[in-house]
Design a protein around this nucleic acid. Structure first.
Lengths: 344, 344
DNA sequence: ATGAAAGCGCTAACAC
DNA sequence: GTGTTAGCGCTTTCAT
């Protein structure tokens, strides 16, 4: 019934024998068949088919020193954020692009410093060709470890310790924030507040910087600290409202906080956008879907960033021989775009 | 500064040379050192240390035919449910246990039937020693494929097609449901409804069965269909309330739906548990944390189930030589326990 | 208890 | 173009 592979799997040798060619030729065909005459290619292909031949990965790795696997390193605080659609999207992009490159995703889940040694050993053991990591928090110890392992790595999000000159992929947080605030200004708003994200994440810092780029001498009290959660956004909005009776706009560092702000506004009977205009950041579908009014926000292509992380890594791996440290180690900053909806 | 591994990594040969022993002895020491005299063990250990030797995985796999990696196959609908804490917990358990066994987690993300062939090839390619899969939905095609690949596999959740005699790990859904309903009965409740989960998940079906075990001739109209979401629970509760004015208890197939039911009850001014007692299923911390009143529910140890999946798989892999199909392929049903809180 | 030697299955020079 | 051959780094009989 269930046609199960029974005996030992056929080797290249067997394929070659059946096709009546040498092992080398069989190998060439299996690897694309460049420089082999058509009829032979055909013969080998048939033999592969008939025997159900599948290349032995270990043997191949042993000689090529490439194993077609990439580690995705996720530290506990971020994994928790798997509930955060942000991560799901990024990992989705990574997974898809990896598949397109015929590479496997090896998940390395770091629960704490106790796991550091294991990770270092694994990375140092050459089990993977490269690694993808996320630099969400300022705790550099893990990042440093990864870099030191010597495994080509691309980070997601600009690392905090700028001394580590590692390639990363991030969206233009600062530029996006600028665009958001400029939009608010263009609407004629005079008193524009900012609900900021946690200070230990570069994305939040960059967005604050963008805010200040436009509002050079904004009163510091217009800036209210949040932590990227909906509740913190609601709280911050309440504070701002108390502090600034004439407030007419707010730029939140992410959509979740913007949604929180929106609910506070509604509770207080403040009209959006008539009285206060609101702009978010991320364009997170699951959040944006049901805010009232529809949220104007800065979109970033998260899945795309995941894919780019992989592309960057792959380029580095492929070009390993040539321009080692040339454009190979360049980072990528992706564009953001303002999505205008009803809230501003 | 960054102490990076520069040249090619040292081989066993190098270690042996430095320790003044043969490659064979060095190998023995690296693999535990059984049957090697202490002084030599010591010498080799030192050489390993000094050279920073790390075994070459591919070479080892090539000869042992074991590669210390396990695939975790996640199909798209379930991955979406990564937001569902259920999955996070189960994967956490799996990851931890795998680490304890020195095995790596290779994530295989299946987006649709288009990926089936790729998965089959990967599994067939012997890249992993075993696989862990989830049988949440009745779509057997993927499951069948996995089974057919011949890779030892353990499923999470009882598979729908009972014809596939594959080992799985699941909690005692039916027994747990029975306990929940019996508790309601012991409370003196006479009109006990059930908010069921989707019909294509065995867990939901088993819980329905448990409900009927206790309430043998319950009116079919006491059973209301939900889909495991909070909203569906709220809706179902409303329907039941309309249908049964004398309703005094409800058992929901999961906590999320119970939470939804609770909010409907509150809206309608129905007191819990005085008027209607409510019991959930899962004891999902993130849901249970903030229901009012605190939810009485059936607890299952999800992380533990993840760990058991790994243990089962490992036992199968290790005992591969001996009692192949003996107790090796047995499934595990874990106990549930009723957690009494305020709602029933 | 230790060493010598034979591969594991494959790719990549190098000959032809 | 195609075949021959030499390893990749390791484990594992088999002698000693």
């Amino acid at each position: 019934m269930t046609e199960q592979i029974t005996g030992p799997r056929p080797t290249l040798e067997a394929v070659a024998a059946r096709a009546g060619v040498s092992r080398a030729t069989a190998s060439r065909v299996v690897n694309g068949g460049a420089g082999v005459r058509a009829p032979l290619v055909e013969k080998v292909r048939r033999a592969v088919e008939e025997l159900g031949y599948v290349p032995n990965h270990a043997a191949r790795t042993l000689v090529t020193r490439r194993n077609g696997a990439v580690a995705v390193i996720i530290a506990e605080p971020e994994f928790r954020i798997f509930s955060d659609p942000f991560f799901e999207q990024q990992v989705r992009g990574i997974s898809r692009e990896l598949t397109a490159h015929d590479a496997q995703l090896v998940l390395l889940w770091v629960e704490g410093p106790g796991d550091h040694e294991r990770i270092a050993r694994y990375l140092g053991g050459g089990h993977v060709d490269g690694a993808l990591a996320f630099s969400l928090h300022s705790d550099d110890r893990l990042s440093a470890l990864i870099v030191r392992s010597g495994v080509p790595t691309v980070f997601g999000g600009r690392p905090a310790g700028s001394d580590l000159a590692v390639p990363f992929v991030d969206c233009d947080n600062r530029g996006g924030a600028r665009e958001a605030v400029r939009h608010l200004v263009s609407l004629g708003r005079k008193r524009i507040a900012h609900i900021a994200g946690p200070r230990d994440q570069t994305s939040a810092l960059d967005r604050i910087a963008g805010y200040h780029d436009v509002l050079v001498d904004a009163d510091p009290a217009l800036l209210c600290q949040g932590d990227f959660t909906r509740e913190s956004g609601a709280r911050a909005m309440a504070q701002l409202l108390d502090r600034w009776p004439d407030l007419d706009a707010v730029f939140a560092s992410n959509d979740l906080m913007a949604a929180g702000a929106l609910s506070t506004l509604r509770e207080r009977g403040v009209r959006v956008p008539e009285d206060v205009a609101v702009v978010g950041f991320d364009d997170m579908e699951s959040v944006v879907r049901d805010t009232a009014p529809a949220l104007t926000t800065v979109r970033q292509d998260i899945e795309g960033m995941g894919r780019i992380m992989v592309k960057l890594l792959m380029r580095r791996l492929d070009g390993a021989g040539e321009a080692e440290s040339a454009s190979a180690s360049a980072s990528v900053i992706t564009q953001t775009s303002l999505v205008r909806r009803a809230s501003a």
